[in-house]
Amino acid sequence: MADQIQENMLFSCVHEQHFGTEQLVVNHALSIVISGRMEIFTPEGSRFFEEGKMGIMRKNTLLKTRKHPALDGQPFKSFTIFLTEDYLQQFALQNSLPAQERFTGNHLYEIPEESFISGFFQSLLPYFDKPDFFTSKMAALKTEEAVELLLRLDQSFYGFLFDFSKPFKIDLEAFMQKNYLFNIPLVEFARLSGRSLSTFKRDFTKIFQESPERWLKQQRLLEAKNLLQSTNIRPSDVYLHVGFENFSHFSNSFKNYFGFNASRLFNS
């Protein structure tokens, strides 16, 4: 079974090392690694989640993932439940929760293995191989259970989950220098920086004296060259690290910009 979505649940199973293509967490994502391990790259650095590890990623977080099968040959498996803003707004209304201040804490929270949430995930494992049995009613019940358990685990989750404020206008230069390697549409860069697309493009050109598209390609190619010169990453892998969608586009862009093939640096 490959990745399969049922309602707001994601059942993931991959048999070979896999670099994720989705690089923006739109909704809060509560996850467990069932087998294998997952490497997570964020603007703050990278970390591994081994088998049995649980965590929650906050909405609007930029990240890259690399999934590794287990050393004994078992495929990588994980389970994720997405907590959407629409659902959480409804939950807050039904439970008369007060408005929350803008959340300023960590975007990735590792959940202790001894918490009740471990038992919550255990109750979901039978559905992993038979996701079609996971009905809409079951999804609603389990989503409510997940939220209740998080709130019982740590009071800070009230702010984490129920801050419904929109991204505000931030320092665009610092934001782009920190996040240019993430492959997301310009409209998402604009939204995360607290701007409309037209304002984003205008502010960007004023700051960088270049269009966003041209600047992003240039910065990603320069980083690719640096990685090829300083690491043992192959050109066929490096394009994923630097935000290109496919190897062909990366190869052509690299040769056009530098005047030689990326493989020349890897073999030198």
Rank of each mutant, 00 (worst) to 15 (best):
A2N: 07
A2K: 08
Q4N: 10
I5V: 15
L10K: 06
S12C: 11
V14P: 00
Q17P: 06
H18Y: 12
H18G: 02
G20N: 07
T21H: 12
E22H: 11
Q23N: 10
N27F: 10
H28C: 04
A29D: 04
L30W: 01
I34Y: 00
M38R: 05
E39K: 13
F41V: 08
T42S: 13
S46A: 14
E50A: 13
E51M: 12
E51W: 02
G52S: 09
G55N: 09
M57F: 11
R58A: 11
L62T: 00
L62D: 00
R66A: 06
H68G: 04
H68V: 09
P69G: 03
G73Q: 13
F76W: 05
F76A: 02
K77Y: 06
K77R: 15
K77N: 12
S78D: 08
I81T: 03
F82C: 05
T84K: 02
Y87V: 10
Y87S: 08
A92H: 07
A92L: 10
L93K: 15
S96D: 15
L97C: 10
L97Q: 04
E101R: 13
R102I: 13
L108A: 05
I117A: 01
F121H: 08
S123L: 07
L124Q: 03
L125G: 03
P126G: 05
K130N: 11
K130P: 02
F133S: 11
F133C: 08
F133M: 13
M138V: 11
A139R: 04
A139I: 04
K142I: 04
K142G: 03
E144P: 06
E145S: 12
F157Y: 15
Y158G: 03
G159E: 03
L161D: 00
F162V: 07
K166V: 05
A174M: 10
F175V: 09
N179I: 03
L186D: 06
V187W: 07
V187P: 02
F189Y: 07
S198R: 10
S198K: 08
S198V: 12
F200Y: 12
K201Y: 03
T205N: 10
K206T: 14
F208V: 02
S211V: 11
Q218M: 11
L221A: 06
E223N: 12
L228Y: 02
T231C: 14
N232W: 10
P235D: 08
Y239R: 02
F247T: 05
N252A: 08
S253G: 10
S253V: 04
S253L: 06
N256W: 05
N256S: 14
N256A: 15
F258W: 06
F260A: 08
R264I: 12
L265E: 03
S268I: 13
